[in-house]
Amino acid sequence: MKKWIKTMTVVMGTTLLLSACNTSNTAKNQESNASGSSDGYEKTTIRLAYNLPQDHHISKGIEQFAKDVTEKSNGAVNVQVYPAGQLLSDKDMNQSILTGGVEMGVNSATLWASTVPAMGIFDVPYVFTNYEKAGEAINGEFGDKLRVAMEEKGAKVLLFADYGFAQFANNKRPLKSPEDFKGLKIRSIGDIPSEMIKAYGASPVFMGGGEVYMALQRNTVDGATSGTTAMLQRKYDEVAKYLTINNYSYLEFLLAVNLDFWNRLPEKTQALLTEEAKETEEWIRQQAQAEDERTAKQLEEKGMEVYVVPEEDISVWKEAAKPAWDAFHKTGGDLGKELLKMVDKE
């Protein structure tokens, strides 16, 4: 009898202990749910918009960034991606980021130049002529100065996304020197490149990327400048015979976040976003060179006649593009001039 009572006492004690533990765990879970945290992350939703095609290497990197942040936070930091202009056009993107209409967005440095004039340096011809130098500059003092300038306007740069180098395609003749541009009508991608096109003796024409194919087909323009990734995606090989590889402009896109929103995020969430952005930036930079090489080769295989400007001739192209440098001196402000000195010295 005593043995039975003793056994029951132990069982009841164990049951009460387990019950107390369960009650404690339930209370903790309820407290966690009430505060909206998971694995130490406070619950938040981040809308991320971009305009590039979903199969572009930048898009793939951004999609993976969003997926990794969401998964590593166990769903607490939910990054919702709106690709290919579904939420915002590239023209509306920057203002929406600055006003908090959207938390994050990817847009070109060319378009950010209207907010931070010095950002137009990526359009200045032959500032960067290889991937390594561009990466070193962006990861160093050069990039830091641009990040500070963006924050002063209300946006934090999470990463620089390398699009790759801009080239020239046309359907008239091989462009083996600046003189070969004379008399041509060339679709431009910005004010600074337009100054270079004019300096080469051609006429710049502004139009959206989606309009170029038809314009080349109808001879509205004789040629266009873009990256070879876009040329392949938009089938330039069907309407342009000649491709000149001269790496005149290193095109950059920025993943930017509204600064006020960023400052309200917990440090743990900021650390996660920063870490994943760094890894994504490195991956995109590696892909930029690989994609440039792959797509240029494919365009050649599809019938385009490709001319690669010899490295020793680049100085001639750069000297002929001096009016574009002069234009940036006027529009890039003091920071623009400082950045030009930094890269020119290198």
Rank of each mutant, 00 (worst) to 15 (best):
D39I: 00
S203A: 07
T274E: 09
A202Y: 02
I121N: 15
D334E: 15
T229H: 15
K322A: 07
A109T: 06
D39Q: 04
P117F: 03
N130I: 00
E211G: 11
L48C: 12
T115E: 12
G100S: 07
M12D: 00
G120T: 03
D162Q: 15
P53H: 09
T7P: 04
E282L: 15
E275H: 08
A277R: 14
G227C: 11
F128I: 07
K145L: 14
D237M: 00
K297M: 12
D344L: 07
M8H: 08
A66E: 10
V81S: 08
G332C: 12
V69H: 04
P204D: 08
V102P: 05
K337Q: 15
Q287M: 15
D313A: 07
I284Y: 03
I138T: 11
E275L: 08
D68Q: 14
A76I: 01
V79N: 04
V239A: 06
V106Y: 02
L111R: 13
K241V: 04
A34K: 05
L339Q: 12
V116P: 04
Y41R: 02
N51W: 03
K198Y: 02
V306T: 14
W283V: 15
E71T: 10
L87H: 00
W317K: 01
L16H: 05
F142N: 09
D191P: 01
L158M: 14
T129C: 14
T9S: 14
A202G: 08
D292W: 04
A137N: 13
S203H: 07
A324W: 02
K156A: 11
K133I: 01
G209H: 08
A34G: 01
S89L: 11
E301P: 06
T225W: 10
D313F: 08
S38Q: 03
W262C: 05
A137C: 05
A277D: 12
Y82V: 03
L254Y: 14
D90F: 05
E238S: 06
T99N: 14
E252Q: 15
Y200Q: 06
A321G: 05
Y248A: 02
A49F: 03
L251Q: 14
T244Y: 07
N171C: 05
V102N: 04
L259E: 11
E300A: 15
Y131G: 09
P174C: 00
L259S: 10
G36D: 06
K337G: 09
N171D: 13
T26L: 07
L184K: 05
R234E: 08
S19Y: 10
M93C: 13
A27R: 03
Q298F: 02
N130L: 07
V127N: 13
L87Y: 02
N94Q: 15
A76T: 00
S203T: 14
I58P: 01
R218V: 07
P174S: 00
A137M: 06
E276P: 08
G208F: 08
M304E: 07
Q95A: 14
L175M: 06
G120A: 09
R285N: 13
T225S: 10
V79G: 03
I314G: 03
V157G: 11
M150D: 09
E291R: 02
F261T: 04
K67N: 13
D260Q: 04
G209P: 05
F253Q: 15
D55W: 03
A290W: 13
H329D: 13
L340G: 10
K268G: 03
